[in-house]
Design a protein around this nucleic acid. Sequence first.
DNA 1: AGCTCTTCCTGAAAGC
DNA 2: TGCTTTCAGGAAGAGC
Length: 289
Amino acid sequence: MPELPEVETVVRGLLVALPGRRILSVRLGKTDFIADPKLLSERLPGSRIGGVSRFGKFIFVELAGGAHAENSDAQLHLLIHLGMTGRLTACAPSEPVLPHTHVFFALDDGNELRFTDPRRFGKMRLVTDAWMDDLRARWGEDALAIGAEEFAQRIGSRSARIKALLLDQHTVRGIGNIYADESLWRAKIHPARRADRLSAKQLRTLHRAIRTTLLAAIELKGSSFSDYVDAEGNPGMFQRMHRVYQREGKGCRRCGCAIQRVQIAGRSSFFCPRCQPAPRARKKSRARG
DNA sequence: AGCTCTTCCTGAAAGC
DNA sequence: TGCTTTCAGGAAGAGC
């Protein structure tokens, strides 16, 4: 399940293989996850790849030129989301093709960029600079870029449960189920707590916990459970460091108490019942005086 | 408006 | 053993 650290790892790998390369041809398999497959095969051939960067869980591949590129306003770039099982790898064309590989880009150095995605929760589309500007302006800030103050501002006034907000990409971009649980455990905050009932100190602690967790995961090249691999096809190592995720019934690494699991926002949420105390139900307007 | 639930998809794992 | 059922999850869209 690629979240921010996994996507960051893929991008770092692609930065070695892609910038400066020209896309010679495009070959497509299933295309129901591509916004406009015809546009993709028409416009990409001839494009030169510039930078590769990450925004939340999106991979942004900057392009220059390409077929029918009359003016720079119409320059299209490639936006890719790995969804849950997406893999983006650069390799020799002679490498065996994994099942569910739906996109092949032939590159001018003889290598091939492939997109593999069994579940096809991934997304691929060509976007203009204006489209990207709009995305950056209207959607959440990247989880590693956001400051403590803006984080508290975006989160602190909301009545939704904190876990649901961390998963909502319109609030903060890049956090998924694994790193939401790991960050909340680190910050000692129960996933079902209402965001607007967290103290300012807890919001600061959570902001820091998210940064620490994400940066540590990037160091270890992400978490691999089922499908995730980096751009070279290697798994990450952070899953060995997980404190709560997928550890139901096992001992909390801080206090030894058995990790519990609840459903929040339709997702399994793992937490320590002792370190992360449950929210207490407030009684409505009890008669005073 | 804001929040939560449902849906998409496939393969691994659990259940019978 | 082999089939069926359940579950996992990102994010859009529906529903409340």
